[in-house]
Design a binder for these strands. Structure first.
Lengths: 376, 376
DNA sequence: GCACTTTGGCAACAGCGTTGCTTAAGTGGT
DNA sequence: ACCACTTAAGCAACGCTGTTGCCAAAGTGC
């Protein structure tokens, strides 16, 4: 049932079956939010029998993860009991290590932030120093979680710029900070905090978090335009990282053959076109370039929604959203492929990255660990 | 265990568990080919216990799907017994309906072609006529399969150009042949042949078939350059079709902002650039353009391998492979992301499409039905 | 107040992979 | 030639999964 058969493992036994179905139910409970969802609807949506759902939800209730929350209007018989997730039953820490700033956030199972801490950070400082600052921020927000046995903190998700190996948790050449090359951030941070740690690219974290904010979309792209241009892809409901966890290299896509030279050594990369236009104040052109890249992505992968973010976009949200939307709508019109894909902007500045980082930790709980996913 | 949690269903019970593990084992048996694989290696690779593998393989042997095939050299104890797939235990028909030609092929479980039939076809003819010709070709190659109870034909996979809805099996506006718009090919063909039918785009079929030819690559792209330019993507071991089964729109990716106008109404599409260069005999330029698009794809999705195919490529294989490879190697060098992604060409003319179409039917047997997959 | 509908738990069950143990089938030392 | 050892693989008992059949609970509507 794991789609990633090519990976080692994949064999499923009874505990795995149980965990799978429990995750499925938890995911639906999370999606239902505070309104909750009835047992029978859970049965319909999962394909399980009502009795199985009763057993599973009974377990979840005994573990404190779910609870009854009122009942629906009767339809001629006994009214359905509504169940909902107990958000405070578990927490996760999201950590965003940006070039000049650090954000730590404690989120509950529903993804709602419980505590936040922001601090200046010099990513160029010695590694030990950065790790110490990060670990301290983690402990600070962690103090906001109730410390009972049942209400555990699942772990820390750390998002940072630049290429890294998600599987091993080792960084590569973080742009502009060569001292991080080969640094085993995951293990060091796990040691410093005493919690399991997952590391990933900032764009991936943001994509995961944003994909969960509005539901129902299996294929989703987040485009981040800040000091650089990158993408995070959620395909089939989980992050697509690729074999070398190098997916999302959106900025150095060629969009203008033999165009202006880019810092990467290539020519006509979407990043240099977009940022050059933005730098000279031609936001409309920057948005048009970004839109062309987004439309390429939408057509190639049949993406359901595109979300824009990053400081450059935040400076002129309407112009970017409008410009990108125009390009996508025009192309959808040409293809005649029905309604154009919605384009929105990620509100909240840098918060989506930190909150999404926490979702890196929570994803396995809800059965959304992708191929490159980390076991619980 | 199914990655596609967002889809309805997803709930797993005991039969599903059994089917999942059996598929996993069958997939490894298929990968092992005629050399076979021992029970203990199956256990290692699946993560199941040796005893579970023994039970599963015993079932497969009793169903005639697997058999013992010699034993390995001893390593100090009882030598391991080697198991292998029995290819002739099942077959599938692959059907390639091209604009001017029809190819039908019967393949066994291992994917090896058993019987082939090629016939001229006018895809512009009335639908009933085309279906009748296709159904007749299916019956012809089907006659080559042993008709015993155990050796069943699983179904027909039909690949054809142009957009279509894989899930419903209904065609859209097949380029140049408007009469197919809205035609329920899957159901009509199922009626005519008496077999389950799966339809998909020709590029998707080719991608699936080629991805299985050489193993171990989870993320794979097939680029088809013929009268048009399209792509098929295998991500995480299964075909990526997208929510509207419209993924793979590679040809109308913008590669040259404000470039020459394309038939689709856009400008600077990779297809028009590539085909225009090919038409004026500048194969090197066509290959360079194709390479730029391929490199974009590789960077964006962290693809493991790129395979080129189609009549235009076949006319000058070395030039295209060399040109594409050069662009990809150059970009890999710039990024410093290790070894460049291998680029090869799909041999065998149109056969890969028909053989891949048969794999559309076999994929679920081996646990490789993607999100858009069809149940057995 | 009674008939009906719908929800949801209890108990028995079939069947999955796992565990503990035994048998099969080799190698290598003496 | 024999025996100790190693490795492979089947048998039997087991725990636990979702399923099935049944019944109690809790509503609606005539």
């Amino acid at each position: 049932m794991n789609r990633s058969n090519s990976r080692s493992g994949g064999g499923a036994n009874l505990p795995a079956l149980r965990h799978h179905n429990a995750s499925l139910v938890l995911d639906l409970l999370r999606a239902a939010g505070e309104h909750g969802i009835s047992r029978l609807e859970l049965a319909e949506r999962t394909g399980l029998t009502p009795q199985a759902v009763s057993k599973i939800t009974a377990r979840l209730r005994s573990e404190g993860l779910a609870t009854e929350a009122g009942r629906l209007a009767s339809t001629g018989g006994k009214p359905r009991t509504v169940l909902r997730l107990v958000p405070e039953a578990g927490h996760a820490v999201g950590l965003h290590l940006d070039r000049d700033e650090l954000t730590a956030v404690l989120v509950d199972l529903a993804g709602a932030p419980v505590a936040t801490r922001t601090a200046p950070l010099d990513l160029g400082a010695p590694a030990a120093e950065v790790v110490a600052t990060a670990a301290h921020a983690v402990q600070t927000v962690r103090a906001a979680a109730p410390r009972t046995e049942d209400h555990r903190v699942f772990g820390v998700g750390a998002a940072l710029p630049g290429p890294l190996d998600h599987r091993s948790g080792v960084l590569h050449r973080v742009t502009g900070f060569p001292q991080w090359d080969g640094y085993p951030l995951r293990d060091v941070l796990a040691e410093a905090t005493g919690l399991p740690v997952v590391v990933d690219k900032d764009t991936n974290a943001a994509a995961l978090g944003l994909a969960l904010r509005e539901r129902g979309e299996a294929d989703f792209a987040y485009l981040h335009l800040g000091t650089g241009l990158g993408a995070g892809l959620v395909l089939g409901g989980t992050l697509h990282r690729g074999a070398r966890t190098g997916a999302g290299e959106f900025g150095h896509q060629t969009l203008q053959l033999d165009g202006p030279p880019c810092g990467c050594g290539g020519r006509g990369c979407i990043e240099v076109l977009c940022l050059a236009a933005a730098a000279r104040g031609d936001i409309a052109e920057a948005a048009r370039v970004l839109g062309a890249g987004a439309a390429n992505l939408v057509g190639l992968l049949d993406i359901d929604r595109v979300v824009l973010g990053g400081r450059t976009v935040a400076a002129d949200e309407d112009a970017y959203v409008g410009g990108v939307r125009a390009v996508i709508e025009e192309r959808a019109l040409r293809d005649g492929t029905g309604a154009p894909v919605p384009v929105t902007v990620a509100g909240g500045g840098d918060r989506p990255v930190a909150e999404g980082a926490a979702q890196l930790v929570l994803a396995p709980v809800f059965g959304r660990a992708g191929e490159g996913g980390v076991e619980d």
